[in-house]
């Protein structure tokens, strides 16, 4: 675990020492701010509805950020040859994957934190519950973590970060689209697809201020399975 934390610390350091990290933060803040202004605060709405729409928009931005953050995690290590440092050190493959993921998750949290000024602005003319706010941000973190894990798996599959980003984007896109696919299919397939839907089924309760155990378990399961698969991919690379 110590090795995973060391790798995570270095990963966070990379984003905070390079322009890449600040570019991603700037992009996220711009998109969140733009969408908040354009869609959330326009017209006459209840405060809770404004907050719900903010989390809906923020989830889209978070998933884009997760794909951008995760695409280089392992692919760049392979591309630059620094993976040899990790492979030849007394670090287990699951610690490499966990360290990379944790580093990216901490950066995602650091990046998400400054967006809190937007919900705070609602307090100027309305009233929202702190529970709603906390549940929404918790949901964003679970949702972002699952997207990051899928991105980490994509990054383990290739040596080219951009390609990893494309694979991550497509994979998350497919998971999101299952919600729409469920509408045009018959039972029981539609029920399976609905249960699998990355956003449409499991995120709305969070954005409305509710925390359901099934949604938490779903995002944790996606995270675990993706990280487990990434570890297996890393192990398999040693045999190739």
């Amino acid at each position: 675990m110590r090795a995973a934390l060391l790798i995570a610390r270095r990963e966070v350091g990379f984003y905070l020492r390079s322009w890449t990290g600040y570019l991603i933060i700037a992009l996220v803040l711009f998109l969140d701010g733009f969408l908040f202004n354009a869609f959330c605060v326009s017209g006459s709405k209840l405060s809770a509805q404004v907050l719900t729409e903010f989390f809906y928009n923020a989830s889209g931005v978070t998933v884009i950020a997760a794909a951008l953050i995760s695409m280089r995690l392992l692919a760049e290590e392979h591309q630059s040859g620094t993976i040899n440092l990790l492979y030849s050190s007394p670090v287990r493959d699951h610690e490499i994957v966990l360290g990379k993921f944790l580093g990216a998750l901490v950066f995602l949290a650091v990046m998400t934190l400054p967006t809190v000024y937007m919900p705070m602005m609602i307090f100027l003319h309305g009233k929202i519950s702190w529970g709603h706010l906390a549940a929404g941000y918790l949901g964003l973190m679970f949702y972002g973590a699952a997207a990051l894990a899928v991105g980490t798996l994509a990054s383990a599959l290739t040596k080219i970060p951009i390609l990893a980003g494309v694979i991550a984007g497509c994979s998350i896109g497919v998971l999101i689209l299952t919600h729409w696919l469920a509408r045009v299919t018959e039972r029981p397939l539609s029920e399976v697809l609905t249960a699998m839907a990355f956003h449409g089924t499991h995120f709305p309760p969070f954005q409305q201020g509710m925390i359901h155990l099934r949604d938490v378990v779903y995002y944790l399961a996606i995270t675990y399975v993706a990280l487990f698969a990434a570890t297996r991919v890393l192990e398999a690379r040693r045999w190739r």
Binding site: L6, R10, G13, F14, R17, S18, G81, S89, V91
Partner: peptide
């Protein structure tokens, strides 16, 4: 390795400290 495994954004001191900690 044939190409030294270096993290370009780190300083030499920080990099070696990281590697030392990683190697126990």
């Amino acid at each position: 390795p044939d190409s030294p495994p270096l993290y370009n954004e780190m300083t030499v001191g920080n990099y070696l400290t990281f590697v030392a900690e990683l190697r126990g």
